[in-house]
């Protein structure tokens, strides 16, 4: 088996299209990191103190106070939900904050996890999926699969060796790419002698590695689907169709998409839990004005999908696709 995996790793390494995509999995994080570093800068204590001072002076302006008072007088009109802290919400709406007086967008590792870091994970994951489909599709398109089976007839071993090679390579490359991304972001802090809060860099790196794991699963899914359909184009068409039609169907038919939507579950794994939004029941609207009339938790419109739930979902999905793929590959005639 080790020998077969070695052969598949070599085959993968010799395939130019795959190499280009693997290179993209490394280049994309670097490009996104460069864009983030050009657009944002780490926030030093002096800059933030100055911005806070400006915000405090602005808050004293009469128009700010008037707006705040109007909100406090009639919070419902300002969209404050029942049970919410009206004073806090009104202050959030009306009183300027230090962020608004900064000369540049602050570079924040924790925040980057939700935007550029997530973007890296998503794009790298999609490329990994393409690697999986391309790798398998080439063997079918050229007919070389039958030649391979004349040298190793145990089809489950062949399938497994190819799958291991795809998962291993995409996982490692995605992990390297995300690690480089976070180290580039962190390097900006170190260059300015700014302190990164305890654990924040590790959390960010861990998010990147979880993203690499999801990318590897995406590659496995792409590979398994292509081994099932025997065509890269068909697989990509199906994935595109499912992503479009599936999204519409989920929004139409399912109140809580958390248990079925792959994007929510993938995000739950990458981000260590995912906050998502659901439609609130009609019962939450008690009067004609549409104001919230109950403090029932179902009326909050927010739910969280945990990392564990996401892992179970992705694991089951991968197992189902792989199982169908192996069963088909074992039984069907090879052209």
């Amino acid at each position: 088996m080790i020998r077969l995996i070695g052969v598949e790793l070599t085959r993968l390494r010799w395939r130019r299209a795959v190499l280009l995509m693997l290179a993209a999995m490394l280049v994309v994080p670097v490009v996104i990191a460069v864009i983030a570093l050009v657009d944002q800068q780490p926030l030093g204590p002096d800059a933030y103190a100055q911005a806070e001072q400006q915000a405090a002076e602005e808050a004293k302006q009469p128009y700010v106070q008037e707006g705040l008072q109007a909100c406090l007088d009639d919070p419902v009109d300002f969209g404050v939900a029942p049970g919410e802290d009206a004073e806090q919400v009104c202050r959030d709406y009306n009183v300027p904050t230090a962020d608004q007086f900064l000369d540049y967008n602050p570079l924040d590792l924790a925040q980057a996890r939700d935007d550029s870091g997530l973007a890296v994970a998503v794009i790298v994951g999609l490329i990994a999926l393409l690697v999986g489909t391309t790798f398998a599709g080439h063997d079918w398109n050229t007919g070389s699969m039958s030649n391979q089976l004349l040298f190793e007839t145990r089809r489950v071993r062949v399938w497994s060796a190819k799958a291991v090679a795809v998962v291993l390579v995409t996982g490692v490359v995605a992990a390297i790419g995300s690690t480089v991304f976070w180290l580039m972001i962190a390097a900006r802090f170190w260059l300015d002698d700014l302190v990164i809060p305890d654990g924040v860099l590790l959390d960010s790196l861990q998010q990147g590695w979880r993203g690499a794991g999801v990318a590897a699963l995406g590659a496995l899914g792409g590979f398994a689907l292509t081994m099932l359909s025997r065509s890269t184009v068909f697989t990509l068409g199906v994935l595109f169709g499912v992503s479009v039609a599936g999204g519409i169907l989920i929004s139409l038919l399912v109140d809580d998409p958390g248990w079925i939507d792959p994007t929510v579950n993938a995000a739950a794994v990458i981000e260590d839990g995912k906050l998502y939004y659901v439609d609130v029941p009609e019962s939450c609207y008690a009067d004609a004005s549409g104001s919230y009339a109950t403090s029932d938790s179902d009326c909050f419109g927010e739910k969280t999908r945990s990392l564990g739930d996401g892992l179970i979902y992705l694991g089951l999905l991968s197992a189902a696709i792989s199982g169908a793929s192996v069963a088909s590959y074992r039984r069907r005639d090879v052209p």
Partner: peptide
């Protein structure tokens, strides 16, 4: 199968690999 060599219909190899690389992959298998 190690005692059987076969060419079935037309030859089927990876077109972008050299002939040698195609054979190397099979030999290593």
């Amino acid at each position: 199968i190690d005692r059987v060599g076969a060419v079935v219909e037309s030859p089927k190899f990876s077109p972008n690999f050299t002939g040698r690389r195609n054979l190397l992959l099979l030999a290593r298998t």
